[in-house]
């Protein structure tokens, strides 16, 4: 069989399979991270909102990193004079600050 193999084109499917496995391992991780950012964002905002009033539009949550290090960047713009914690205020009707 081996002697005759030069008569046939080299099989390419194993290469395709390996390339896909490597690529998708990376892409699934990256997709998972965007979900992670969404979850982190939601939970961080919920925690902070219990204590300080802020504009949810003015919040940046980013997952970054280089090489083996990952960083989580959270940028929240707080009002000049921090409001008292929400639990000391009368209940709010909506989310609007």
């Amino acid at each position: 069989m081996k002697l005759l193999s030069f008569l046939r084109p080299k099989s390419t499917a194993p290469v395709a399979r390996e390339r896909l496995q490597i690529l998708l391992a990376h892409e699934r991780l990256a997709m998972g991270q965007t979900d992670l950012v969404a979850i982190l964002r939601q939970e961080i905002l919920a925690t902070i909102a219990r204590h300080v009033e802020f504009d949810p539009e003015r919040v940046k949550v980013q997952l970054g990193g280089a090489g083996s290090m990952s960083t989580l960047e959270i940028d929240i713009e707080l009002p000049a004079t921090p409001m008292p914690p929400a639990d000391r205020l009368p209940p709010r009707r909506s989310n609007a600050a």
Partner: peptide, 16 residues
């Protein structure tokens, strides 16, 4: 073509 290794096989796609 899958048998000749020219195309991803059923098992390849299912595994992935």
């Amino acid at each position: 073509r899958a048998a000749r290794g020219e195309m991803l096989g059923v098992d390849d796609v299912l595994d992935i």
